[in-house]
């Protein structure tokens, strides 16, 4: 009985003028309509319409890119929530962090979720690159996507690092003091780079604000851009490549 009402409701929604103005194709019951689901959706059209069944097997890619991607989504969601309570100023930043930990409902949960997802994203990206390397998936035609992936790893590490300062506790302060002193040692550009990065000569309120803008606006925007290219290139390069197939013709590589 309930399935009958559910299916009539579904049919009613699908036939409504509003639904049909948004989604123009029919139910995904034919090959053509299944393709249209992907083609006509902004978010899905970067994916291939069809994938080989074997590429979906866990051991083919160990789902490492996907795991990293899910961690990224979690980071966006929880990060936006944390921004509702955070002021990037001294000493309010530390107080806000304490408020999230001890006062706000579920504050500890979302803060820790952001932290653990960040660790997962770094770990996932590294393991994903190892997997790609050992499966020789960086080779033509995928050499450009490997470079995009390297940029994505750099952005991931920069996001981790800029987020490190935001709680404005001792760990954050000295972590960024040490890190920016390392940057200072770069030849020629080192000193001006540190000055620009911190907005001054010491880790101060300017540095907190700069790291905040980098962490919450600049780097996430660049990350989304490069992720879009990365995913789209997977389709353009013929789907994900798993373990290289054994070809008796060209056996031994030096």
């Amino acid at each position: 009985m309930s399935s009958l009402t559910l299916s009539t409701l579904t049919a009613w929604v699908r036939n409504s003028a509003v639904y049909r103005s948004i989604i123009r194709h029919g139910v995904a019951d034919t090959n053509r309509n299944r393709s249209l689901v992907i083609f006509e959706n902004l978010f899905l059209h970067v994916h291939p319409v069809k994938v080989r069944e074997k590429t979906l097997k866990f051991t083919h890619t160990f789902w490492l890119g996907g795991i990293t991607m899910v961690a990224t989504f979690v980071l966006f969601a929880t990060g936006i929530l944390l921004m509702f309570y955070y002021h990037p100023s001294v000493p309010q930043a530390y107080r806000d962090m304490k408020e999230l930990m001890f006062v706000v409902d579920n504050g500890v949960f979302y803060r820790n979720m952001h932290r653990w997802a960040a660790h997962l994203m770094v770990l996932g990206a590294m393991l994903h690159m190892l997997r790609v390397f050992y499966h020789r998936a960086y080779r033509p035609p995928r050499q450009f996507n490997w470079v995009v992936g390297v940029v994505l790893l750099l952005i991931t590490l920069l996001l981790s690092y800029t987020g490190y300062l935001l709680p404005w506790d001792q760990l954050a302060f000295w972590g960024v003091s040490v890190g920016t002193n390392m940057a200072k040692e770069a030849p020629l550009i080192g000193k001006p780079l540190r000055f620009l990065l911190l907005g001054g000569n010491i880790v101060s309120e300017n540095a907190l604000l700069r790291f905040y803008v980098l962490h919450c606006v600049v780097l996430p925007a660049v990350l989304m851009l490069f992720i879009s290219v990365h995913i789209w290139r997977i389709r353009k390069d013929g789907g994900v490549q798993g373990p290289p197939e054994k070809d008796p013709g060209e056996e031994v590589e030096p």
Partner: peptide, 11 residues
């Protein structure tokens, strides 16, 4: 529900 709970300021 947990997000709605989170968004309500407690202090």
């Amino acid at each position: 529900l947990t997000v709605a709970d989170f968004l309500e300021p407690k202090v």
